[in-house]
């Protein structure tokens, strides 16, 4: 279970509070969506969970399976099963996608006390997953994300997720910049990973993605706080009414 308790985060370099007391619980086996207007702190939450530098936690705690996530280095978190699908995946020139995947998988397996896969085992594993995401073999030979289209980059994030088999999946705006066919492919890839021992946090600005990845709960975030929590129908309401209600609160508190 992921437990976020009254998490308060500011930018390390400035006195700007981004998360002003987030509390949230995502049990294993559930998918929770976080929706909210731009600048509400959604991506900051994703980065803080993954351990990116540049943020300072000034209060609260984050527990993953009872362990203090915030005390861990980013690679330790990955070893503990945390995975962030980036909104803007990085391009790594000179590192073939296959090499990158293998390096990451072996690192994670080592830290989890599992044996490294043999080359044929690894290739088979990756090819099977890639097939489901309509990722061509040729792409796996190219440097990671270099020259990939927006859709290819997002599918590659999901491929990495499938290969690394994390238990806490955080998806940051995975649908942004995707056409409807790509949203379907990516969603199918995510749905395939839904399971009883996996928790997912799906961050999105639009309701559209949640037609395909149907959440157990929807949280609305604004001004660095969870403003409202509901079932999957809350996403549909937001689609109609927009974020105006929450924005006005933001203005009042400003």
């Amino acid at each position: 279970m992921l437990e976020i308790r009254n998490l308060r985060v500011k930018l390390a370099e400035e006195d700007k509070l981004i998360l002003s007391g987030i509390s949230l619980e995502v049990p294993k086996g559930q998918v929770h969506a976080i929706m909210g207007p731009n600048g509400s702190g959604k991506s900051t939450l994703a980065y803080v969970l993954a351990g990116r530098e540049g943020y300072e936690v000034i209060g609260g705690e984050v527990l993953w399976n009872g362990e203090d996530l915030l005390a861990m280095e980013p690679d330790e978190r990955a070893a503990k099963g945390v995975f962030l699908a980036f909104q803007y995946p990085m391009e790594i020139p000179g590192v073939a996608t296959m090499t990158f995947l293998r390096t990451a998988l072996n690192a994670v397996r080592r830290s989890r006390g599992q044996a490294e896969l043999t080359t044929p085992q690894f290739m088979k594993h990756v090819r099977e997953e890639a097939l489901g995401l309509a990722i061509a073999d040729e792409i796996l030979k190219r440097p990671l994300n270099v020259g990939f289209s927006g859709g290819e980059k997002k599918r590659m994030e999901i491929l990495q997720m499938a290969v690394l088999a994390p238990t806490l999946c955080v998806l940051d705006e995975t649908d942004s910049g995707l056409d409807i066919d790509a949203v379907r492919i990516v969603s199918a890839g995510v749905n395939k990973l839904r399971s009883q021992d996996r928790a997912m946090l799906v961050i999105t600005h639009y309701q559209r993605l949640l037609n395909y990845i149907v959440p157990d709960k929807v949280h609305v975030m604004a001004d660095g706080k969870i403003r409202k929590t509901g079932g999957k129908e809350l996403a549909l309401e937001l689609e109609k009414s927009g974020y105006a209600e929450f924005k006005s609160k933001a203005l009042e508190s400003a």
């Binding site: 993954a50 980013p74 990085m90 990451a104 830290s111 990495q160």
Partner: peptide
């Protein structure tokens, strides 16, 4: 640093990344 973080978020230890 962004690339480094991306790789670490995939479980690759910092020295190796």
């Amino acid at each position: 640093e962004d690339l480094l973080f991306y790789m670490r978020a995939r479980g690759i230890p910092v020295a190796q990344a």
